[in-house]
Design a protein around this nucleic acid. Structure first.
Ligand SMILES: [Mn+2]
Ligand SMILES: [Mn+2]
Ligand SMILES: [Zn+2]
Ligand SMILES: [Zn+2]
Lengths: 148, 148
DNA sequence: AATCTTATCGATAATCATTATCATTATCAT
DNA sequence: ATGATAATGATAATGATTATCGATAAGATT
């Protein structure tokens, strides 16, 4: 559970004739050291703590490699910057977000997944993934009225 | 079913001390004349056919008003520009998109909606909307192999 | 270990959709 | 009609991401 991700990245790179580099190692470590849903900029900041000379473009490029290799995935598609989350040993799930305080709950609902499959069949589509975000007010925010 | 949308916009504007203008009328007409999921740029092009002198910024601003007044809503949140769809007399629905040809099917699934409500209750959230997009291959694209 | 090919780096310019700015003009309650 | 104020259109600015490019490092081959 330590160097697994690193070997996955190495294997992915090798299979494409790409190279494992110091910078990519830095970005990987930075990403793995962060939790939940992180922006490229957050990864950039974490990477600079490891190697202050790393370039922002390299972070963007490497995050894309992480996503392609299956180590990262896009968590949501909202305003502003894209956010990524760990994909290795982190199974598919959907998100429930509080529109007031931004709290995010990750969940998997078998009924929803099953009903989605039924929709695919109804229209003869072959499934290749989905994105579901539920918006609402978390318990704290709904008890404390509307605006804080 | 003709001037309804116009009265809705007028009422919304009046309630906020805003003014009904020629430009806003133009953007509304342009938007209503388009179907399905349109970008601000598509509305801009349609609006220029009505009034060639209209400004792009005005189109962006007015589309936001249409959304706030309930006449338009964001249809999806993918790459590139935002896309809007009619919201008046166009009830909530989700989208099933072919990742190959871009075809979009609009659907409503009671089982999914019901299961979503259950998720809200499970976590004590108060619902305020959701966004669901299913991705896959449409019947045509999956029968004609992978890449066209 | 030296060499050689090629991918990668970091800095910086470029994109692209959307917003902000601002001087001029239009709207509308009076 | 008048005046207070919102709206317009041109244009600059923003912010996230991508493209460009000369210099450098990776790693296979000798
Ligand atoms: Mn998540
Ligand atoms: Mn739709
Ligand atoms: Zn909350
Ligand atoms: Zn298709």
């Amino acid at each position: 559970m330590s160097g697994d991700e690193r070997s996955i990245l190495e294997g992915y790179l090798k299979s494409r004739g790409l190279k494992m580099t110091k910078a990519r190692d830095t970005v990987l470590a930075a990403f793995l050291g962060l939790e939940s849903h992180v922006s490229a900029d957050a990864v950039y900041e974490a990477a600079r703590l490891i190697d202050p000379g790393i370039g922002q473009a390299t972070v963007f490029r490497t995050i894309k490699l992480l996503a392609d290799s299956g180590l990262a995935r896009e968590a949501c598609r909202d305003e502003g910057a894209r956010r990524y989350e760990h994909a290795y040993n982190h199974a598919h799930h959907d998100h429930l977000r509080c529109v007031q305080c931004g709290a995010v709950v990750e969940f998997v609902d078998p009924d929803i997944e099953r009903a989605q499959e039924a929709v695919y069949q109804r229209f003869g589509f072959k499934s290749s993934g989905h994105r579901l975000e539920l918006f609402g007010l978390c318990p704290q925010c709904s008890s404390s009225g509307g605006q804080p």
